[in-house]
Nucleic acid binder design. Structure first.
Length: 549
DNA sequence: AGTGCCAGCGCC
DNA sequence: AGGGCGCTGGCACT
């Protein structure tokens, strides 16, 4: 059963119920104020909710204690079907852009905006859009994969809203202690003590009592005046230089980064009531990865992870997929040798044991180079060996790179299409310099498409994983029979591309770890069927995120 | 004062 | 001269 909801005005919600065969079962007009309660009563029938934007509808339902089992996020699905090569011939793909192509309200509104039945919307019928999308999927050359992808993005959108609602358990006092320990005492209106001391050392080493290390242009001039032959102030360039300023400056940069990005100001702005609530943007990245807005939820530096602490009587169950991208590549390409190397929990060590490369580090750089298109350094040197040991995997990414260079669109395993690249037409009127630039641009686009298929498919695996985790955790907590809200049971609190954190009551921590592992196996099966590729996890049951690795 | 870009660096 | 991001302060601009 489907329940399509829309809001013709800010006071009203229209709901249309439809059978699985698409026939209308009823139509209702509900005052917006009573919508959450109405939704709670209908959720017991296990409908699949159809709405334009999960971030627009779901936060208010969560706030009212309503947890949604399934939905179709029509905006996310529209974006997939627009770009999917397999649905290129559909009416939808050719239709002019309309409000179903709009960005999520999560992107446009203040991060703390909750219920967003605010803007009067044109009364577009979500079921009409759903029907268009179903038709596009059914007529596509890959209905199974596109159906799965739209479902995966949609469940991801539910998780994103739930992550924000639950928040990541954050101990502000510990964070403060970490900052004080590293940066020194907080100084009102000035730099923290240790940073200020480093500034004094930097000024003295450069014999420049005025220089401000936060200003790259003036710092660069000062460095050059002091005789350092550098073209920028970046750390990697300073690293090779023997001068007394290098040590304090490098130390300062590290501290300054922490201070500005995740210091006390961040703590004040983003942590409330013991929770960090970032804003996640599902499919916010072209590859299908999530993006984040404000707070840097996907950029939490390791330095502050000690402040992520489970509630008393609870644990953090931290799981990350080991070498996810190489494993995804092995599965996509059907490279049996690479799949064999992945039998080992550590795929890179498996590559060493198989004799493909000499050391784990070589395996890692070689593999990452294959996926990113690296040609220099260690990754470039390893290239021939990787090619010899894993010819199918290598050919697979090479094909994607060549296609990108030709200006073609490539696709992830489930069918998400890459954005149209720059036109690559050959033009004899161009100068040599222009042709060089153009070739270099084509190669850059080839590196993008090469990475796109792997990164995008890894994101699909992660979505399937989190969707399965979410379902298993619900059951673990007692399912529908339990009256408690989902945050009273094991629940997801963090997602980071190939990593999940569940906040779980201590007595359910082991079962939670099992659920994470079971879901990883399931994700592999959903995507790749019986392909002999394993997706092992590293799982840690800890009090603090910092103890997970 | 507000806007937009850049350098630099954090995450995967 | 390896892919994808977000955030900050500085800075140039309006």
């Amino acid at each position: 059963m489907f329940l399509a909801v829309s809001s013709p005005s800010r006071e009203i919600v229209d709901a249309v119920a439809l059978g699985s065969d698409g026939t209308e079962r009823g139509r209702q007009r509900i005052p917006a104020a009573g919508f959450a309660q109405w939704a709670a009563s209908r959720e017991r029938e296990h409908p699949r909710w159809l709405w334009d934007d999960t971030q627009r509808w779901y936060p208010a339902l969560l706030a009212a204690g309503v947890r949604i089992e399934r939905c179709v996020d029509l905006r996310l699905s529209r974006a997939i079907l627009r770009s999917a090569p397999a649905a290129r011939g559909s009416e939808l793909a050719a239709a002019p852009r309309d409000r179903w192509d709009a960005r999520s309200v999560a992107v446009d509104e203040a991060p703390d905006a909750l219920f967003s039945l605010v803007e009067p919307e044109p009364d577009d019928d979500p079921f009409e859009e759903f029907a268009r999308q179903r038709a596009a999927i059914a007529a596509s050359s890959e209905p199974g994969r596109l159906g799965l992808l739209t479902a995966a993005d949609s469940v991801g959108a539910l998780v994103a809203a739930e992550l924000r609602f639950a928040g990541l358990p954050w101990d502000a006092e510990r964070h403060d202690r970490i900052l004080t320990e590293l940066l020194g005492a907080r100084v009102p209106g000035g730099r923290p003590a240790r940073m200020e001391a480093l500034v004094a050392q930097i000024r003295s080493a450069l014999d420049d009592p005025e220089v401000n290390p936060d200003s790259a242009p003036t710092l660069l001039k000062s460095l050059q005046r002091a005789g350092l032959r550098v073209g920028s102030t970046s750390r990697w360039e300073l690293a090779g230089i023997d001068h007394p300023v290098v040590a304090p400056l490098t130390a300062y940069k590290k501290l300054a980064r922490l201070y500005t990005a995740n210091g006390w100001a961040w703590l004040d702005e983003w942590v409330r009531d013991g929770r960090f609530r970032g804003v996640y943007v599902p499919a916010g990245v072209v590859t299908g990865r999530w993006a984040s807005l404000g707070g840097g939820a996907l950029q939490l530096p390791k330095q502050v992870r000690g402040a992520v602490v489970a509630d008393p009587g609870w644990k953090l169950v931290v799981a990350d997929a080991a070498q996810l991208e190489p494993r995804v590549l092995a599965a996509m390409s059907g490279d049996a040798a690479m799949a064999r190397a992945g039998r080992a929990h550590d795929l890179y060590q498996g590559m060493v044991d198989a004799g493909a490369v000499g050391t784990r580090s070589q395996a890692k750089y070689g593999m990452l180079g294959a996926i990113y298109g690296g040609t220099t350094g260690e990754s470039g040197r390893m290239r021939p060996r990787i090619e010899k040991a894993f010819p199918r995997a290598m050919a697979f990414v090479e094909d994607a790179a060549r296609a990108g260079e030709r200006g073609e669109i490539v696709r992830t395993w489930l069918g998400r299409g890459s954005p149209p690249g720059a036109a690559s037409g050959w033009d004899e009127t161009r100068s040599d310099a222009e042709r060089d630039r153009s070739r270099s641009g084509q190669r850059a686009w080839g590196r993008f498409t090469r990475n796109f298929i792997v990164q995008g498919t890894a994101a699909e695996w992660a979505l399937c994983w989190m969707g399965s985790v979410r379902r298993l955790l619900w059951t673990l907590g007692g399912g529908d029979e339990a009256a408690a809200p989902f945050t009273a049971r094991p629940h997801l609190v963090f997602f980071l591309h190939d990593e999940l954190i569940v906040h779980a009551p201590e007595e359910l921590a082991e079962a939670t770890a099992d659920a994470l592992r079971e879901a990883a196996v399931e994700a592999g099966r959903i995507l790749f069927g019986t392909a002999p590729v394993e997706f092992p996890l590293s799982v840690a049951i800890v009090d603090s995120y910092a103890d997970a690795k």
